[in-house]
Write a protein that binds this DNA or RNA. Structure first.
Length: 723
DNA sequence: ATAGGGTTAG
């Protein structure tokens, strides 16, 4: 390849065959230095071929040899701009874009002007270097304008690309709109630019404008648009593009095929995606990754895994897809295992992989693992990236270390809305409603605009802390002051807030006042409140409404049977259970896990799978006896089924968190803290049990349930028994 | 110039 590009240059050389040959075969900087000395002695100006060769070699990608190359250039007998521009372009082809910018800076300072072929080079480099490059892009744009070159379509296209790559899509669009001649590449850069900046709807709109102005899209443009549709889960627009492709008889290459597969798998249409994928031969990495992603998103994690396992030559992206698949389908342990495997194979993660890994760690709530991931993040230079810091804040909150979360939060100079919201969520989860509200006030005083998620967090903070008036005020403020439209989730939070505070009638009226039909989330919140307060009549009504909306809503059946059980209506309990059985509705099984010395131990109810099972059950007996001495008596009121009292007692004593606690007590000392996580809500009896255990055994017990943390200490829980 | 993976809540 290099020989080919050097042919014309070699032909232009003065008759000095041996020197020429030496240039073409040189491979190291010392070697080049020798030749350079020889060139200077010969008095010939053959810097151009010399530099071309020097810059084409991989060694030009190290700072010291780049330095050398530039110094040769700047000290050549007549450093003219043609040579400088050639050097710049040679440099840009194979190296880190940052050095192209360094070289550009040196050439500028030496007073060498850019030609029209170098502007795009520098702009492309600037576009690839995020962060510091905005200034460069603007400067280069200004420079092009000064020399009148900004009317050149190639330069204009590059300017559009640079702005959009830096997230300044609107500025890119302004340049694009002023272009007199737009070829397909220009359209492609603008469309892709919108996608890069996350402006997918603008991309779709521009695509329509493009078609109505009579420009015929090619495969490249169509692949870009399909990708935009995939990312926005827009099957309507995507399907239209697919039809267009079929109607126009366009041949479908691997890129386009992958884009189509990705569209359908992103939208959850796995049947169509699978059909297209079956037609693909050979299977390519991108299409396979899209399939893995699609199945994982639907929870068909085993299917995803089997495709993943069949892939040879896995790259970073498919590892990430599989890892995030596990992370998002509540298998954080598997996600971390896979990350380890990838790590051992020497595949280097990027920030996207790390976000999935951090999120997996957060969902697992494992503190030792969390620490390990944090160290990994620091060591590998990810710690300055804002999205990573945001994920870390969330991770530490969910692992029970609010202090660590707070530290990262405080040490984050530039905070975006997610940073603030994550911190608010952290306080909300730990029942610290006042701190959550204080963080919100701080956020507002810093001029950061809250979004819908921020308000969900705030309302949950109020709900978990019993701050009813504050919650009402925030809901109003969201509409009045921030002009945000409350969605189902917000109404659900409000119903939860009112319901927990025993304001059941007001909660019902609130639902009836909604401007749109309430969904399962909203009714579900009220149902939960009915269970807490034992309102059988309202609970029954709500559960029926819920089951009308979703006949397979497992939560509704469970809560309904709970309510009946609480009222000892065993006949009704049986009916509900039968109904569940007939419909094949399965109650989500409760399980708990505890991390001890870096290992995660999982427990189901009555679980005897643990290798130290005997020891654990022995400890549990002992614990129960000791707690009974201080007045504990199993609260069997919440046991769903009509069992004999003795059976009920046994059932409740074998809840998974009690097993986890027993192991925790065996393996820890007095005065230490025990961290347990559970996938569903903690029951009344376990809650009392934990409170007493914290006092009798002198441990702080931190229990994370589905939505929040309980910190038990000296017989008291941080939730104030309000959860 | 093009296709695949990501952070806050639920």
């Amino acid at each position: 390849m290099e020989t080919a590009t050097l042919q014309p240059l070699a032909a232009a050389l003065p008759p000095s065959p041996s020197l020429n040959h030496r240039i073409l075969t040189a491979t190291t900087v010392p070697h080049f230095k020798q030749i350079h000395a020889q060139i200077l002695r010969s008095g010939l100006d053959i810097s151009a071929p010399f530099l071309s060769r020097l810059l084409a070699l991989p060694l030009a990608s190290s700072p010291s040899s780049l330095d050398y190359a530039l110094s040769v250039l700047l000290h050549s007998p007549s450093p003219d701009f043609r040579l400088a521009n050639r050097a710049l372009r040679a440099l840009s082809s194979a190296t880190d874009p940052r050095w192209t910018l360094v070289a550009y800076g040196r050439l500028r300072r030496a007073g060498l002007a850019l030609d029209r072929f170098s502007f795009p080079t520098v702009l492309r480099a600037a576009a690839r270097v995020r962060g510091v490059a905005g200034v460069v892009a603007q400067e280069v744009h200004g420079l092009a304008a000064k020399t009148g070159l900004d009317a050149d379509p190639f330069i204009q296209t590059a300017v559009v690309g640079a702005y959009t790559a830096l997230g300044r899509a609107a500025e890119g669009r302004m340049v694009f709109d002023r272009m007199h001649h737009r070829d397909l590449v220009a359209w492609g850069v603008m469309l892709d630019g919108y996608c890069q900046s996350g402006c997918y709807n603008e991309a779709l709109q521009l695509f329509d404008e493009m078609k109505s102005s009579g420009v015929i899209p090619d495969r490249v443009i169509l692949a870009t648009i399909l990708s935009a549709c995939a990312r926005t889960r827009n099957l309507t627009s995507g399907g239209a593009v697919h039809s267009y492709i079929v109607e126009s008889n366009l041949s479908i290459d691997a890129h386009l095929q992958s884009a189509l597969i990705s569209l359908y798998s992103s939208c959850g249409s796995m049947d169509t995606a699978q059909r297209l994928y079956d037609d693909t031969s050979p299977k390519n990495l991108v299409a396979s990754t899209a399939m893995v992603f699609g199945y994982a998103k639907l929870g068909k994690i085993a299917v995803a895994r089997s495709i993943f396992d069949q892939m040879t030559d896995k790259d970073l992206v498919c590892w990430s897809a599989m890892i995030s698949g596990y992370a998002e389908s509540d298998q954080p342990n598997e996600a971390l295992k896979l990350f380890n495997e990838m790590h051992l194979l020497g595949v280097k993660p990027d920030q996207i992989t790390m976000l999935s890994v951090i999120s997996a760690c957060a969902n697992m709530g494992a503190r030792d693992q969390a620490k390990w991931v944090h160290i990994f993040v620091d060591k590998n230079g990810f710690h300055q990236i804002l999205s990573i810091r945001n994920a870390l804040i969330d991770m530490y909150s969910k692992c029970g270390s609010l202090v660590d979360a707070r530290t990262i939060f405080d040490e984050t100079a530039f905070k975006d809305v997610i940073t603030w919201t994550s911190m608010i969520t952290g306080f909300a989860m730990h029942g610290n409603g006042r701190s959550a509200l204080a963080v919100f006030d701080h956020m507002i005083s810093e001029g950061v605009k809250p979004n819908g998620v921020t308000f969900i967090s705030l309302l949950y903070a109020c709900s978990h802390a019993g701050l009813v008036d504050e919650g009402r005020r925030i809901f109003e403020s969201m509409i009045q002051d921030y002009r945000l439209e409350p969605k189902h989730e917000h109404y659900g939070c409000m119903v939860d807030l009112l319901g927990r505070a025993r304001l059941l009638q007001e909660a019902l009226e609130f639902i009836e006042s909604m401007p749109f039909a309430p969904n399962v989330v909203v009714w579900g919140s009220l149902l939960g409140a009915c269970r807490i307060h034992g309102d059988v009549k309202l609970g029954e009504l709500v559960a029926r409404r819920l089951l009308e909306l979703d006949p397979n809503h497992d939560g509704a059946y469970v809560l309904l049977s709970n309510i009946y059980a609480k009222a000892s209506r065993w006949e009704d309990v049986r009916e509900v259970r039968n109904l569940m059985k007939n419909k094949g509705v399965i109650k989500e099984a409760g399980f708990s896990w505890i991390e001890l010395n870096g290992h995660v131990h999982e427990f189901m109810m009555r679980d005897k799978c643990h290798p130290r099972s005997n020891e654990i059950y022995g400890k549990l007996d002992e614990v129960v006896k000791e707690l009974e001495l201080v007045g504990y008596s199993p609260d069997t009121a919440t046991v769903l089924v009509d069992l004999q009292e003795e059976e009920k007692r046994e059932a409740i004593l074998l809840h998974s968190e009690k097993l986890a606690l027993s192991l925790g007590l065996i393996d820890s000392k007095k005065g230490s803290s025990i961290h347990i996580a559970k996938n569903i809500r903690v029951c009344n009896d376990c809650h009392t049990f934990m409170k007493l255990a914290s006092k009798v055994f002198e441990r702080e017990i931190v229990l994370r349930d589905r939505t929040r943390f309980h910190h038990y200490k000296d017989g008291v829980c941080s939730c104030g028994d309000f959860w």
